[in-house]
Design a protein around this nucleic acid. Structure first.
Lengths: 120, 120
DNA sequence: CTCATAACTTACTTTTCTGTTAGTACTTAA
DNA sequence: TTAAGTACTAACAGAAAAGTAAGTTATGAG
């Protein structure tokens, strides 16, 4: 939960309002968001449990909360099919898709520069 | 301070080891790092107090800790001149410079998509 | 009647991050 | 002699993020 008036939250707002980089990073900066975005970029539409299996180590709570945040930020679309058993699919919105080249360049830099630890 | 063996820390490590994006984001994800990196990209070398004045709202503790982390990550170089009063300058290392196009694309995306709040 | 599946919620704890306040050493200027 | 500048450090508190464990709803299969 967020305290609207904490210095912490105010600083974040101020930064996001004045700096495009800060703003962009605030949208993709959650622990598992890079993984989720990457999967959705590659695979397109994915069901909840598919995402869960594709991202080893993520808990249900984290998967849901990261998805919900990105949904609120209009990066991800949640599609519910009124079936039993339930089926829910996630895919990138147009805004999410518009991140592709940015995400690619972040990924490229990362792949290039974490080589030292690569062998693990 | 970090608990080496917490699930939290282990998950972060695992993500950084398997995903270039996660790794890159972990280096630039601190609250004030985007600001600092941006300043250093634009202005080149800057003194401690210059940075402080260029980044309104940052506290000394935060400025120092963000700089120290980036120094540890080899993104930023700290140059101490043995003078009185003391003079310390910060600049991007080659590794830091190599982030330029990535940072630019993050910034571009951000500038383009935070327009709604722009008027504030 | 119990189990399994899908896609979650809820309540709670732990860990990590950020911010506040005060203090350091040294020197020059008023 | 007091203040101001420089570049910090230390101790602590509070907020936010992440993790854990258990429960929910509805249905069909055995």
């Amino acid at each position: 939960m967020r305290k609207e008036a904490s210095s912490n939250a105010l600083n974040e707002k101020k930064i996001n309002a004045s700096c495009g980089m800060g703003y962009a990073l605030s949208l993709i900066g959650g622990r598992w968001k890079s993984n989720i975005l990457w999967r959705l970029l590659i695979d397109g539409k994915l069901r909840y449990n598919e995402l869960r299996r594709l991202i080893p180590g993520i808990s249900e709570r984290m998967l849901v909360s990261q998805l919900r945040e990105m949904e609120a930020d209009k990066l991800v679309l949640r599609i519910v099919y009124p079936e039993v058993p339930p089926r829910v699919e996630y895919e990138l919105t147009e805004l999410g898709q518009s991140m592709r080249s940015m995400l690619q360049s972040i990924s490229d830099w990362g792949e290039m520069h974490r080589q030292v630890t690569r062998e693990n």
